[in-house]
Nucleic acid binder design. Structure first.
Length: 646
RNA sequence: GCUGGCGUGGCUCAGGGGUAGAGCAGUCGAUUCGUAAUCGACAGGUCGAGGGUUCGAAUCCCUCCGCCAGCUCCA
């Protein structure tokens, strides 16, 4: 029998008979490996355990506890779910069923619309399929065979996918009566699945195209062990408790009213206070870094937006305000750029003035469509730390880096750095109508941005079709507690609007030249940042950001005066303080302050009053002992001044 | 905008054709208390809005508004 040489990840070579399967190799190594094995990687290609090795190769055996193994498991569970849905609703047509971060989904097209109760039914059917321990097999077929197979079933969506696989090997996986177009690999039997859960149902357009039919998507997850699944589900529940939309209302940061409408939150005193602190912090820091503040109108005649291109490219996102007659249309501003450009243009500019850094705490209005609004994250009116750096071509790199340095400083100070990632958002060359400017300029600017990022050694992803209509962006992304991704900060290089608004400066040689504009935010949108902070800290803001920093709690009515006196001292020192004067027991007051997530509680009773002290309790550390009010003030002032994170 | 779910006092929820219920929060009274819930009383709702079916609608039907998740779109 012919022997082949198989190289394992540790570098060792195993000689096996030609035709030996991956599973056999695993068996030959150890029973434990065999049990945990889900698939193999042969010469960098993922394959099933049943794959026979025909020639010398490198082989990694993927186990269920690895990231790749988990992916295989979840993909198989997605098939089991599709099989179950097919058994329960035989008229179901299948869409796609990929794995995603933390789980999988499958899209279905059927007349019946799934209810949450259906998920339980489907889970029960899946459990049966797992009990049946069906063998999962791979079959490679030709394009014609594939077309025939799925035409007979009326699987229109699968046929569309097959059409795009023209030059590739088409494979079908079968388990019992069920089969599906799939690249694989998969577990080798349904019985290997130990722990899964279906999570929710939602609509999703076929191929992500809103012009095409909407299918029903079921999300689920799976883990090698039940305990891991349970742990994950607990984690999900815990995350929901941090939801800014729930906590923000409970903590009286903001509220909404049906009378006001969607996407228009009302900031309550505590929420407004946090926003004010953030805003002052940003404005002061920008001033230190050479920004000039502007204050421009919330609306303009449409003429301005026509010139900037917003009217043509952004009209759907704008609120229009009718004027006295047809031609006198106004619009609320969706961005501040054109206004600041007019300030720049108000006189002739010299190269000596550049770079000019304009900053504005800009309130913007965007007419988001009704299904998009969410808490403080997607709203129709918001305030953003918007700025425009007008510079020469030679200054772009240093200005870009300066903007990014400010951003990173902000993220570090707020403790958010570890929660974000960077994305180079490029245009979509197949969709030129969405943009202004020439393809060459787009490519050149994107390359320039890439070079800057690379020279900083910054790690980033690239994303096509995510650019602004006037230029590419560096977006700084974060996830909310539901795992949904949002842009929180952005830096953009704009070569188009300076042209459209005819910005210029007089250069050293006396010639008029075109400047470049960098659009940037430093913490982005204040409302969205507040939402992130609420979720990051579960409402327990670092002391410098806390709307109430100290709560003074008299042990009984007899000490209310002393409590008020103490609070007065703190207030003079600029500390945000409240006194709980309710005729309640101390435990009750502490509980109240804990639930409001106030950083410090000062308990005052006879012992404190007689010795002119306060008993300090920290929301996390508990009782930290007595000290004089002045000592406490010194301590907390220091904590606030250094913007200490918990 | 699309799909699905949901709207009952400030909050969390029960009731599901026969004239609105609990807990917490609030107010008042009693208690004057030492590190996460003292006791009692009171008050609070045109059951999201508007139409319809019915002798009778919080409950069934329709439209709209709002909330939640996802898709699409975007900071």
């Amino acid at each position: 029998m012919e022997q082949i040489r198989v190289q394992l990840p540790d570098g060792s070579i195993k000689e096996v008979v030609k035709g030996t399967t991956v599973e056999d190799v695993a068996r030959g190594i150890s029973p434990r490996l065999l049990k945990a094995a889900v698939c193999g990687i042969v010469n960098d290609v993922k394959i099933d355990l049943s794959f026979p090795l025909e020639q010398d190769c490198s082989l990694t055996i993927v186990t269920i506890d690895s990231e790749e193994g988990l992916d295989v498991l979840r993909h198989t569970v997605a098939h089991i779910m599709a099989q179950a849905v097919r058994r329960l609703w035989p008229d179901t047509k299948l869409g796609i069923g990929p794995t995603i971060e933390n789980g999988f989904y499958y899209d279905f097209d059927l007349k019946h619309s799934f209810t949450p109760e259906d998920l339980t039914k489907i889970e029960a059917e899946m459990e049966k399929i797992i009990q049946e321990d069906l063998l999962i097999t791979r079959e490679e077929i030709s394009l014609e065979e594939a077309k025939k197979l799925f035409t007979d079933d009326g699987e229109v969506y699968k046929l569309e996918l097959i059409d795009e696989l023209k030059d590739q090997q088409i494979s079908v996986y079968r388990q019992g009566e069920f089969y599906d177009l799939c690249r694989g690999p998969h577990l080798n039997s349904t019985g290997k699945v130990k722990a899964f859960k279906l999570l929710n149902v939602a609509g999703a357009y076929w191929r992500g195209d809103s012009e095409r039919p909407m299918l029903q998507r079921i999300y689920g997850t799976a883990f090698p062990k039940k305990s891991e699944l349970d742990e994950y589900l607990v984690q999900l529940e815990e995350a929901k408790k941090r939801d800014h939309n729930k906590l923000g209302r409970e903590l009286e940061l903001f509220t909404t009213s049906e009378l006001v409408g969607q996407g228009l939150p009302l900031m309550m005193p505590k929420g407004a206070k946090v926003l004010q602190i953030l805003q002052r912090f940003v404005e002061d820091e920008e001033e230190k870094r050479g920004y000039l503040m502007t204050k421009t109108p919330f609306m303009s005649k449409k003429d301005l937006f026509e010139q900037s291109g917003h009217w043509e490219h952004y009209q759907d996102g704008m609120f229009k305000v009718p004027g006295d007659d047809e031609d006198d249309m106004l619009a609320l501003r969706p961005m501040t750029c054109p206004f600041q450009f007019l300030i720049y243009k108000s006189k002739l500019r010299s190269y000596r003035e550049l770079p000019i850094r304009y900053a504005e705490t800009s309130t913007l209005f965007r007419n988001e469509s009704s299904g998009e609004m969410h808490g403080l994250i997607r709203v129709r009116q918001f305030t953003i730390s918007e700025g425009h750096l007008i510079c020469t071509n030679d200054q772009v790199e240093s200005e870009f880096k300066g903007a990014l340095d400010l951003i990173n400083f902000m993220l570090d100070t707020l403790g958010l750095r570890e929660d974000v990632w960077y994305r180079l958002s490029k245009w979509d060359p197949d969709n030129k109508d969405k943009y202004i400017g020439s393809p060459e300029a787009w490519e050149r600017t994107q390359e320039q941005m890439r070079n800057i990022l690379d020279s900083l050694g910054l790690e980033y992803k690239e994303a096509e079709g995510e650019a602004a209509f006037y230029g590419p962006k560096l977006d700084i992304q974060a996830r909310n507690v539901h795992g949904k991704e949002d842009t929180i900060i952005t830096v953009q290089i704009d070569f188009s609007l300076p042209e459209r608004l005819d910005l210029s400066y007089v250069d050293r040689d006396g010639e008029k030249k075109r400047p470049i504009v960098i659009h940037r935010t430093s913490i982005g949108c204040y409302e969205r940042t507040l939402a992130m902070l609420i979720e990051k800290y579960a409402g327990a803001f670092p002391t410098w950001l806390a709307p109430i920093q100290v709560k003074v709690l008299p042990v009984s009515d007899d000490f209310v005066d002393y409590a008020k006196e103490t609070a007065q001292k703190l207030q003079y020192a600029g500390i945000r303080v409240e006194v709980d004067t309710r005729p309640e027991k101390i435990g009750y007051k502490i509980r109240g302050a804990q639930m409001q997530k106030v950083p410090y509680m000062l308990v005052v009773g006879a012992k404190e009053k007689d010795n002119n002290l306060v008993a300090v309790r920290h929301r996390k550390e508990g009782d930290i002992g007595q000290m004089s009010a002045n000592d406490f003030i010194g301590k907390i002032i220091e904590e606030i001044a250094t913007k200490k994170l918990d």
